[in-house]
Design a protein around this nucleic acid. Structure first.
Lengths: 142, 142
DNA sequence: CCGCAAAGGTTGAGCTTGTCAACTGTTGCC
DNA sequence: GGCAACAGTTGACAAGCTCAACCTTTGCGG
């Protein structure tokens, strides 16, 4: 049964290997978030926001694939730490624009720097493999 | 400012692109889990278990990077659906071996089939790129 | 201009995940 | 035999998340 002939296409194998990378990523995210005094969802929220482009809360909600009401609590936390501000919409007074504060932008930048760190498995690839990997993924994702 | 010279190494770019794939994966997991009547953590738990190799709960806990007490609840749910069974350890009566039931194995197999589906972005790659991608990842991850 | 449906956000209820501390039962070692 | 260590469960508690209900604002149609 363990020897049942499971046929995997090359890209399926590749996908499974990426799954392993993703899996190893999870504890790392929790750790990084903790180091910045954030919960993982708060980390994703701050990472998603663009300091140069304030957006309504509903936009953040759809970017995070979650409900508006969920974003309320998330933003409450970020606002309590002075990382973002709710600013009233100028044309439409229903919306609250999410503005990343100066401190928020700073935290976000350090965050991005940590998250961009490549897992050791990939780092050990040859320079040629690293470039090839990037090029293939670029072709796939534009 | 948008022109600030952000230097990214090729592998950092590749890692960021994989991050985008990972991000798109999240809603899909939630959807798949729901289709099988499971929550995402339950799905991961069942996926982690090996029908041919019963393991103690603590082993599952460390595989899931979480506390033993958390696994208790997770397994409660899976057991309530008849997907796994707690079997008393033969040599050590402290441990409960997690045995995947027949029905559990069936669900797990269908689950694996769905999860192995490759995201469309990767599926559109040329056959050569797909093989190259697999080979590079194999070199990275063994 | 009025009425009203629709949109943005917040609130509260309720469920699940997850952690920690305390506890039970079992084991193995000194 | 005593005792520290281990496996698992329980209870308390914080947080994420969704849904339904609600409030305010908006903009459209009559």
């Amino acid at each position: 049964m363990g020897s049942a002939a499971k046929r995997h296409t090359p890209v399926e194998d590749a996908w499974a290997l990426m799954g392993r990378l993703f899996w190893q990523l999870r504890p790392r995210m929790v750790r990084v978030a903790g180091e910045f005094g954030l919960s993982p969802p708060q980390l994703f929220a701050l990472k998603t926001l663009d300091p140069d482009n304030p957006v309504p809360m509903s936009t953040l909600a759809s970017a995070l694939h979650c409900d508006n009401s969920n974003v309320t609590g998330l933003v409450d936390g970020l606002e309590a730490q002075g990382l973002v501000e709710r600013r009233l919409g100028e044309h439409d007074r229903r919306v609250r624009m999410l503005v990343v504060t100066e401190r928020g932008a700073e935290v976000r930048a350090r965050l991005a720097a940590v998250m961009q760190e490549v897992p050791p498995e990939l780092a050990t690839l040859s320079a040629a493999d690293q470039k090839a990997l990037r090029d293939i993924l670029r072709r796939a994702l534009g």
